[in-house]
Amino acid sequence: MTSTNGGSEDLQAIREGVAAVCARFGDDYWGRCDDEATFPRDFHRAMAEGGWLGVTMPEAYGGAGLGVRAAGTVMHEVARHGGGMAAASSIHINMFGPHPLVVHGTEDQKSRWIPRLVSGEDQVCFGVTEPDAGLDTTNIKTFATKVDGGYSITGRKIWTSTAQVANKILILTRTTRREDCRKPTEGITVFYTDLDRSKVEVKRIPKHGRAAVDSNLTYYDELFVPDDHRIGEEGRGFYYLLDSLNPERILIALEAIGMGEDALDRAARYARERVVFGRPIGQNQAIQHPLAECWAKLEAARLMAERAADLYDSGQPCGAEANGAKLLGARAGYDACLQAVMTHGGMGYAKEYVVERLLREVMINRIAPVSEQMILSFIGERVLGLPKSY
């Protein structure tokens, strides 16, 4: 792809370019990936060849150097072409997952590692969440002990996506015990390193949807990480992680909205074509009105997400808008996918019509990477000035 400045014409060019790649991968392709639980390597490769994995990466390292609005345009378009979260999750981490490396890495680290992410030669997974910590990130127990020449990491992570196929990991660890720190947010360190499977056990988690993109438990048994694989200062990792939280919420919102739009298009088409009692079912207001309401909710959520992206790209605070977009986008996407299944009736339960898969996959966006309850608490405290509830 050629670099653009993120204007409306440029965003339209991004849409058209991404859509052209997505058009090569139809419902049969995504159905096979889901049925066989196989990573969509051909799609990932095609997106890399088109330059779309480097949208947010600096131009100096082969990327396009664009912002969240452009990244959101890519992910929205990817999600609305039938691949759902299988397509989106296969490339999602490239957008802002490596942000700590881009912002806080040394020149040597960036020049060695970013071009390989842009080209698709390297694939990275993200190790943050732990079974006993969940959203309480400061309570992680995975520990990096200082040894000669580097660190030795021992611990476990959960919901590490793409660890079955990744060769790199961006991992968050403690380097100082929480009880020994002045503040719980201190003593956490980020590393970007090789996923050495002789020291890391990767165990796949069977799950409700998005079978094509694996989620895993990962166990670390004295994984050695050289000093020069540490990102930034020791103990500052939690603050580095914050850099990517708002962009991720915006992208998750737009992915859900894209899936909702796809489901809505399929439902409207079926409602036009399906004839019962001598008339298309779409002629009935009981079918029309719920679908029309889904359209309105999807459009409103998209405007919120775009507003959040514009604020982020202009360097303004966007925490409330990003969280609000994630809440509204995920709910609007889910509601549209659910209504699409209901519109299809019994056939909505059949894999042939795809909407059942979209419904299974869009559930992820309501759950991850932050719960609806935490979002509402954030807005209650930070926007409405209410006392902290937890």
Rank of each mutant, 00 (worst) to 15 (best):
residue 377 S to E: 15
residue 304 M to D: 14
residue 153 I to N: 03
residue 22 C to A: 09
residue 361 E to M: 05
residue 326 K to Y: 08
residue 175 T to F: 05
residue 283 Q to W: 14
residue 366 R to G: 08
residue 61 Y to D: 09
residue 293 E to G: 09
residue 279 R to P: 00
residue 279 R to Q: 15
residue 260 G to V: 05
residue 381 E to C: 05
residue 118 V to H: 00
residue 21 V to R: 00
residue 68 V to P: 11
residue 13 A to T: 04
residue 295 W to Q: 15
residue 143 F to N: 09
residue 377 S to M: 12
residue 215 S to A: 13
residue 55 V to W: 05
residue 308 A to H: 05
residue 196 D to G: 11
residue 248 E to L: 03
residue 70 A to P: 01
residue 369 P to L: 13
residue 38 T to A: 12
residue 310 D to F: 01
residue 144 A to H: 00
residue 83 G to Y: 07
residue 262 D to F: 15
residue 188 I to K: 15
residue 261 E to L: 10
residue 46 A to K: 12
residue 301 A to D: 10
residue 45 R to E: 15
residue 381 E to L: 13
residue 242 L to F: 09
residue 379 I to F: 07
residue 167 N to E: 01
residue 47 M to P: 07
residue 246 N to D: 05
residue 128 V to T: 08
residue 280 P to F: 11
residue 313 D to M: 08
residue 236 R to G: 07
residue 113 W to C: 12
residue 386 L to T: 14
residue 102 V to Y: 01
residue 362 V to E: 04
residue 60 A to T: 12
residue 37 A to E: 01
residue 311 L to K: 13
residue 268 A to H: 09
residue 338 L to F: 12
residue 55 V to P: 02
residue 34 D to E: 15
residue 6 G to C: 04
residue 390 Y to H: 10
residue 10 D to L: 04
residue 247 P to S: 10
residue 96 F to A: 08
residue 77 E to A: 00
residue 195 L to K: 08
residue 262 D to R: 12
residue 43 F to Q: 02
residue 19 A to E: 04
residue 157 K to M: 03
residue 98 P to F: 07
residue 308 A to N: 09
residue 2 T to F: 10
residue 251 L to P: 06
residue 86 A to D: 14
residue 157 K to Q: 01
residue 70 A to V: 01
residue 35 D to G: 03
residue 113 W to K: 06
residue 384 L to V: 00
residue 183 K to S: 14
residue 109 Q to F: 04
residue 99 H to F: 11
residue 4 T to V: 11
residue 5 N to P: 00
residue 279 R to Y: 11
residue 313 D to C: 02
residue 261 E to K: 11
residue 143 F to H: 08
residue 176 T to E: 14
residue 169 I to N: 05
residue 344 H to N: 08
